[in-house]
Amino acid sequence: MKIAAVRATPLNLPVTMASPSGAAKSTSLSLCLVEVELDDGWVGAGMTAITEEEVIGSIVNEIAGPALVGLDPLRHEQAWDRLYWLLTPRGQSGYAGHAIAAIDLALWDLKGQILGQPCWRLLGGAREQVPVYATFGFAFYERDELAAAARAWVERGFRRLKMTVGHHALQRRDEPRNPWDVIAEDVQRVRAVREAVGPDVQLFIDANCSLDYLHAHWLAQRLEAFGITFFEEPVAQNDVGNLAKLRAATRIPLAAGQNEVLASRFRDLLAAQAVDVVQPNACITGGFTQCQRIAGLAAAFNAQFANGGAWPHHNMHLHAGLANGSLVEYHSVAVECCKLVFDGLPEPQQGVLTLPQAPGLGFRPNRERVRELARRPGSRGVGKA
Results as ranks from 00 to 15, higher is better:
residue 3 I to N: 00
residue 8 A to I: 13
residue 12 N to K: 01
residue 13 L to C: 10
residue 15 V to N: 08
residue 16 T to A: 13
residue 24 A to D: 06
residue 25 K to I: 10
residue 39 D to S: 12
residue 46 G to E: 04
residue 46 G to H: 00
residue 48 T to S: 11
residue 51 T to A: 13
residue 52 E to W: 14
residue 53 E to S: 13
residue 63 I to H: 00
residue 65 G to P: 02
residue 65 G to D: 01
residue 69 V to Q: 10
residue 70 G to F: 15
residue 72 D to I: 04
residue 76 H to A: 11
residue 82 R to C: 12
residue 83 L to G: 06
residue 84 Y to E: 03
residue 85 W to G: 05
residue 88 T to Y: 10
residue 89 P to G: 06
residue 93 S to P: 01
residue 102 A to S: 02
residue 102 A to Y: 03
residue 103 I to N: 00
residue 103 I to G: 03
residue 104 D to E: 01
residue 109 D to I: 13
residue 112 G to F: 06
residue 113 Q to L: 08
residue 113 Q to F: 05
residue 113 Q to T: 12
residue 117 Q to T: 04
residue 119 C to R: 00
residue 121 R to A: 14
residue 125 G to F: 09
residue 131 P to Q: 07
residue 131 P to A: 13
residue 132 V to A: 08
residue 132 V to H: 05
residue 136 F to G: 13
residue 139 A to K: 04
residue 143 R to G: 15
residue 152 A to Q: 12
residue 154 V to I: 09
residue 154 V to A: 12
residue 166 G to D: 10
residue 175 E to K: 05
residue 175 E to T: 15
residue 177 R to V: 09
residue 177 R to E: 05
residue 184 A to L: 09
residue 184 A to S: 14
residue 188 Q to C: 12
residue 192 A to I: 11
residue 198 G to Y: 08
residue 199 P to W: 03
residue 205 I to S: 04
residue 206 D to Y: 04
residue 206 D to F: 04
residue 210 S to C: 05
residue 216 A to V: 09
residue 221 Q to L: 10
residue 225 A to L: 05
residue 230 F to S: 10
residue 233 E to H: 03
residue 242 N to E: 15
residue 248 A to G: 09
residue 253 P to V: 12
residue 253 P to F: 11
residue 253 P to Q: 11
residue 254 L to A: 15
residue 255 A to N: 12
residue 257 G to M: 01
residue 268 D to E: 11
residue 268 D to R: 07
residue 268 D to F: 02
residue 269 L to Y: 00
residue 273 Q to E: 12
residue 277 V to Y: 06
residue 278 V to I: 09
residue 279 Q to Y: 02
residue 282 A to L: 11
residue 282 A to Y: 08
residue 283 C to W: 00
residue 284 I to T: 04
residue 287 G to D: 08
residue 289 T to H: 14
residue 293 R to C: 08
residue 294 I to K: 01
residue 297 L to E: 07
residue 307 N to L: 06
residue 307 N to T: 05
residue 312 P to R: 02
residue 312 P to D: 05
residue 314 H to K: 00
residue 322 L to A: 14
residue 327 L to R: 00
residue 331 H to D: 03
residue 332 S to V: 12
residue 333 V to S: 07
residue 333 V to H: 04
residue 334 A to N: 06
residue 337 C to I: 08
residue 337 C to T: 11
residue 337 C to S: 12
residue 342 F to V: 07
residue 343 D to S: 13
residue 349 Q to C: 15
residue 352 V to W: 00
residue 352 V to D: 01
residue 360 G to M: 09
residue 364 R to Y: 09
residue 365 P to C: 13
residue 366 N to S: 14
residue 368 E to M: 05
residue 368 E to S: 08
residue 372 E to H: 03
residue 376 R to V: 11
residue 378 G to P: 14
residue 380 R to L: 15
residue 384 K to E: 03
